[in-house]
Design a protein around this nucleic acid. Structure first.
Lengths: 222, 222
DNA sequence: AGTAAAATTTAAGGAAATTTTAAGAATTGT
DNA sequence: ACAATTCTTAAAATTTCCTTAAATTTTACT
């Protein structure tokens, strides 16, 4: 479950948000001032909902503080829609800006987007194209169909999907998946790749997911 | 430079956006219908600005199509702010939603947020003229087009590009690329150079990149 | 201009790397 | 211990890449 920190001085709104997020299966931390927010914040927090009009430190300072230390997505909520202020906040590192009053469902939708983007997300789901790889229960979905992968196949695909731009050399992949056994036959890797490709192809014949970089290794296809 | 694909049927707005993005140092591709957008879309596109009201395929279908195949952030622009539609789009994979008319600076700010999310900051890129050679994923871009090089071709071009002023003798290049095999036919190198030249010429016929230094070797042309 | 040496291009054969297939070994669960 | 699954290995088939050789073009020099 993902944790969201609400920083909002108005008790009514804070409670309302807290309720809303709980109902949507988020764990909630509530702070009623900027300084309190910074204190409460910890490594478990996956996203921050930040009100602008705060006693004590103002929103800008809070963002600056948080972004400096942590890499957590921040969604700013505010009644005012002063465009210059908005831009300042984006410059400081805000990831989204939503003006009050907002639609609750839209807020949830935007929260989901930013949780999905980040590496900070506790979510154990790695997505790439139409593949969803859940590291907590080792399940894989491709093109809305279930894919059954063995352990090594799963690990291999996971490594490739976590950095889809990067080319992984073969020895690289051996290290990451097999754990530095140079004893293994070079072909073992190739066979595993071949099996993964076949299984994915069964779910979505139109897309090629894994690209071979000749004489180097493999990567996810763009 | 990052590339943004605009999919917007209203010519005035499309032009305006194009101008705006160009002024902010983005490379721009314009499409005037959804189907055109899908056609134009290529590996270089880093973000898509998508208008909802399109002739032919509508926005939902476009998003579905694009997200299925590529892993590119999509910002939806629309005049209507129907909340249900908004939520549908987020569900389909839209990364942001901005209602027209919007403030230009805000659009730029939101674009930056989403480009920042996806980027890997590892800069292993060697540049020379309009060639970009990425040593981490072994990709080469020339004149904004992808160039597919084999391993030896890549290594060879890399050596030349790392010291564009220097003249490399042939035995020098053999050492650096092949690893001191004096057995190899002298001509092997020439053939490789020839192939690289051809591939680069396909991307940019106007420029000659590699200069031959008669009876000595090669270097990058000034 | 003519000539020889060097460089470029082209095509083809062979070398090297990858993919696939299949079967036996190792591992896991019951 | 047995059955089932998974992993590894080996070998054949395939694909891609490299090298070689020959023909052509360019350059340097007389």
């Amino acid at each position: 479950m993902e944790t969201i920190l609400i920083i909002e001085d108005d008790k009514n709104i804070n409670d309302m948000l807290s309720q809303l997020l709980s109902n949507n299966n988020y764990k909630v931390l509530s702070a009623f001032s900027g300084t309190e927010g910074i204190l409460i914040h910890n490594e478990q927090v996956n996203l921050i909902l930040l009100d602008l009009m705060l006693p004590g430190k103002n929103g800008e300072e809070i963002i600056e503080d948080l972004k400096q230390k942590y890499n957590v997505p921040v969604i700013v909520m505010s009644a005012i829609s002063n465009i210059d202020k908005k831009l300042d906040l984006f410059n400081l590192g805000a990831d989204d800006y939503i003006t009050k009053p907002f639609n609750n469902k839209e807020l949830i939708a935007r929260i989901k987007v930013h949780l999905k983007n980040g590496k900070h997300s506790k979510s154990t789901v790695i997505k790439y194209k139409d593949i969803e790889l859940n590291t907590s229960d080792f399940s894989v979905i491709c093109n809305n169909k279930n894919v059954v992968l063995t352990k090594n196949e799963f690990e291999l695909l996971k490594v490739l999907m976590t950095n889809p731009e990067q080319v992984f050399t073969k020895s690289n992949l051996f290290d990451l998946v097999w754990g530095n056994e140079d004893s293994a036959d070079d072909n073992t890797l190739n066979v595993h790749i071949s099996r993964i490709r076949n299984k994915l192809k069964e779910c979505n014949p139109k897309v090629e997911y894994i690209e071979t970089v000749w004489s180097i290794g493999y990567k996810m296809k763009k």
